[in-house]
């Protein structure tokens, strides 16, 4: 009887062990698969290694994961390899070549690296794509974001056109970001800031842009927004910060309508984080 029981228990243990082994095998094979899916990143130690990586990057016969890994290694090599600059021209040539590749991910990364170096080739390609979407290498919002790396890129007119007739909301937001350095766009930012139908994120962007381009205009608009009962709390809070941090002290303390609006805002059902701005303002200016 006892022996039979022991036999059953042994069988159970063996079964458990087998199941464990199976599970462990499964885990290993899954790990192997995932490793081969994202190609290992090779570390370049010399300019000869860099040349080999550049060949891999430009080889359209290689898997995209392998090419992306080569691009990542090259990015690291730019910092770590002694005298990387002696292959800088080869690196730029390779980046320009793959910036028109069929894989969007590769285009995006290579154009990003080029634009951080204010590369004329990348600028031209991105601008051409914004003017003629059939030629676009990247979605308009990404192209605008990259062009924003260079204030001298000559992208303002195309960004203004996108603000007027945006292909999507992301593109409009990025166009506004880019135009935040364009002094001629200050009147447009005033309109965006005052437009209650505009996305609030865009209105916040407009406030920030106006602060940089024409601080007096931001002060004027902020005063109007604070006195407008129907405007949103977050926009009012931004306006309060603008006035409190950068405004004309003496003038505000004497503006009874303004002080009344801020007091009303402070006692409304506004979320506490916005009320903080009102409290700071009142403690500074309320006499």
């Amino acid at each position: 009887m006892m022996a039979a029981k022991r036999k059953v228990a042994k069988k159970k243990v063996a079964k458990k062990k087998a199941a464990k082994k199976k599970a462990a095998k499964k885990k290993v094979s899954t790990r192997r698969r995932s490793t081969s899916a994202s190609a290992p990143v090779q570390v370049a130690e010399s300019t000869d290694d860099v040349q080999r990586l550049l060949k891999v990057l430009c080889d359209t016969g290689k898997l995209i994961d392998v090419r992306m890994a080569a691009l990542q290694s090259l990015g690291a090599a730019a910092f770590s390899v002694p005298n990387f600059e002696s292959v800088s021209a080869d690196y730029i040539a390779a980046l320009r070549e793959v910036s028109t590749d069929s894989h969007e991910q590769l285009r995006r990364r290579s154009l990003g690296i080029l634009m951080r170096n204010k590369d004329g080739f990348a600028q031209k390609k991105l601008l051409d794509g914004l003017k003629n979407p059939a030629k676009a290498l990247l979605p308009p919002e990404k192209a605008l974001q990259l062009l924003g790396n260079d204030a001298h890129a000559g992208a303002y007119s195309v960004a203004r056109a996108i603000v007027k007739k945006p292909p999507n909301q992301d593109a409009k937001r990025e166009a506004l970001r880019l135009l935040a350095a364009d002094v001629k766009s200050a009147p447009m930012f005033e309109k965006v800031l005052r437009d209650k139908n505009e996305l609030r994120e865009n209105r916040q962007l407009a406030a920030s842009a106006l602060h940089s381009l024409n601080p007096q205009k931001l002060q004027q608009q902020a005063l109007k927004i604070l006195k407008d009962k129907s405007d949103y709390s977050d926009i009012k809070a931004t306006s309060l910060t603008a006035l409190e941090q950068f405004g004309d002290d003496a003038k505000f303390a004497k503006d009874k309508a303004l002080m009344l609006s801020v007091t009303r805002f402070n006692s409304s059902k506004t979320p506490a984080k916005y009320k903080q701005s009102a409290r700071r303002f009142l403690s500074k200016y309320d006499q």
Partner: peptide, 20 residues
């Protein structure tokens, strides 16, 4: 310039080199 050298093309106006 040695720290940010670039390939250049003098063949045609407006052309950027995509080969080193």
């Amino acid at each position: 310039i040695r720290f940010h050298d670039e390939p250049v093309s003098f063949e045609r106006y407006g052309e950027y080199a995509t080969s080193s």
